[in-house]
Design a protein around this nucleic acid. Structure first.
Lengths: 348, 348
DNA sequence: GGTTACCTTTGGATCGTTCCAATTACCCAG
DNA sequence: CTGGGTAATTGGAACGATCCAAAGGTAACC
């Protein structure tokens, strides 16, 4: 039935038109399912399309129509399960809407972020979903993406402020509330000396979580010692290495609220190495509820953020923005939920 | 310094040309760093490019040049850490080569695979990296991607055979040897009744791993009972649910070689639910060495496949194919390495 | 002065689609 | 037979870049 030639030029509208004696314009109308074309003609053209193995050239169409059928997705690190789930959600929802995902990843470096955005923007995506790298600035991002491509910021704020003509939407997690819930939970379990572990203050999400922690501590009338704030890179290895800092000076904490799950899992490793048994001698909480959180030893008390749903939501936001370019920019705060597991043991 | 207008049309070569009194062709030469243009002219043009905030339209250029600057990546499930790492590796290497990644994901459904490939191919990628869904057929895939776009198959074979004019490269893991090593390891630890757990025989990688297991068992002169082959979907929940099948009839196994880590982690859950303690009462091995394997309880003995490196390798393969479209198609078998952890306990 | 050579620059066609105004064909009422 | 209406089709100009052959300018040489 099908008979694409194994070798040769790509088939275009002209080939089809010539092949069944109609004009290019008519074939184009058939492709787009226009009601204008005669039923018989349509059938003839469709047969010819099949016969020659025609493949639609969306790039050419997008050029002419000044539209786009792709959305760029820029995340910090795809291998981080939180972002992997997020990306899966984005791609799912975009695919359903007939869009294709252009992928980019920054590795938390603003330099790479600039390079990646610069490269992606040249492909003319209809919009960008960006989870900014730590320390990323509004001005520089705006300069490379320009003002013609809408942006949805996910997970973090940019540094500096945006000109008001840039209608950038935001999708943020309820970081402050989440960290407050975790801290209150540890306090309820009897802990008084609680640290905040991991992340960098360069990142807005980290500042917010820290603020939630501070809020809960203050409300409970608990003092916070400076050495209970340990900053780390966002990998397990780095976090494990930094664990000792909690115990070096002053009174050691009995529990820690961690910036996220990856860092919490790293802290667990670091504790084991010191002979401290997490979930028994030391309580801790994470943030994100990645898949590993439910199978680690001990299983990790954390805040569920349902990243796949967030991905879908980010996709919805950018698609809505494409439909209404001039609408007021909005900020959506997604709720988070405390999932209590073994790691947040009562004070022994 | 910069002064992009907040609103208005996109800037094109014509705007730049008009803005500094040269022709469109000259501006194009400047953009591509041609040595033909006079130094002074180049400076003037570059200044104007900056002043107007010009963004290169790669789609238009690709149309004219009949080239492509993107590669499509189709994986089974992005949220699976094995594929997430793989995708990260692909994107990294493609980015370095100036290519952009078009993402697609099939969820192990051949129907979705067809849809995703159909949508991606319309965007004219220079090549496709495809990890086929279970049961995916060479004929159907070929029919939708056509013969003009090179393909690198990763991880699995397609069903049926390809016409020889389709130069499709393959990047496979040494599945058979890996499963053999795992089985031999369990045998060396004293186990005699060993099952092969998880996956479907629709997938070539699963058949290969099973073959490696059979080979090791036969070489050791051990019998295999039919109920020791349990097929499952590739999720933890499904695997946990299927665990009982190992114990329902005949003599129960004392160990299992699992299709992959996800399934092995699921089996662990299922065992716990039956009151069997994996790594103590029952030995098991995985395949892939995903991040969770080193933090689960017990930690998982598995085969390391370094998926990020495989991703880079797949990217190299497709880029090499773009450079030499007519070269002989090849199959690369990537080595795997046994990582012994707690789950493969000796027979007690 | 005329010829050649070299260095820059350029107009116009082109890639594969869509848009638009115009055309053709046909039928029916007046 | 004319005029008007509907239905279907079409040629040619876009979209924003690149390619190519040709042209303009300058300098050197005979």
């Amino acid at each position: 039935m099908e008979s694409q030639t194994p070798v040769g030029r790509k088939i275009t509208l002209n080939d089809i038109a010539a092949g069944c004696g109609v004009s290019r314009a008519t074939v184009s109308l058939v492709l787009r399912g226009s009601p204008l074309v005669n039923k018989a003609t349509r059938a003839r053209v469709e047969e010819e399309l099949r016969r020659q193995g025609y493949v639609y050239n969306r790039a050419a169409a997008n050029l002419r129509r000044r539209t786009s059928s792709s959305i760029a997705l820029v995340v910090n690190e795809l291998a981080n399960p939180f972002f992997a789930e997020f990306a899966a959600g984005v791609d799912e929802a975009l695919g359903e809407a007939g869009f294709v995902t252009l992928l980019g990843s920054t590795g938390e470096s603003t330099t790479r972020e600039q390079a990646v955005l610069g490269s992606l923007i040249e492909h003319g995506p209809g919009g960008i979903i960006l989870s900014p790298a730590e320390g990323s600035e509004a001005r520089t991002v705006l300069a490379t993406v320009g003002t013609h491509t809408p942006v949805v910021l996910f997970n973090r704020e940019l540094g500096g402020s945006l000109p008001q003509y840039a209608h950038w939407d935001r999708l943020l997690l309820d970081n402050q509330r989440g960290a407050r819930l975790a801290t209150e939970h540890l306090i309820a379990r009897g802990h008084r000396r609680i640290a905040f572990f991991g992340g960098h203050d360069d990142s807005s999400s980290c500042r917010d979580r820290h603020a939630g922690y501070v809020q809960a501590m203050q409300t409970a009338g608990l003092a916070i010692e400076p050495q209970w704030r340990v900053q780390t890179a966002l990998t397990r290895v780095e976090a494990a290495r930094a664990a000792h800092a909690l115990f070096d000076h002053g009174t050691a904490p009995t529990a820690a609220v961690c910036y996220n799950d990856v860092v919490a899992l790293g802290l667990m490793l670091g504790l084991y190495q010191r002979g401290v048994k997490p979930g028994h001698d030391f309580a801790l909480t994470g943030f994100d509820d990645i898949a590993e959180a439910s199978v680690s030893t001990p299983t990790l008390t954390t805040l569920s953020t349902t990243p796949r749903a967030r991905g879908r939501q980010a996709a919805e936001l950018i698609l809505a923005r494409l439909r209404h370019p001039q609408a007021q920019a909005g900020t959506v705060i997604a709720p988070v939920e405390l999932v209590v597991r073994e790691s947040s043991c009562p004070l022994s």
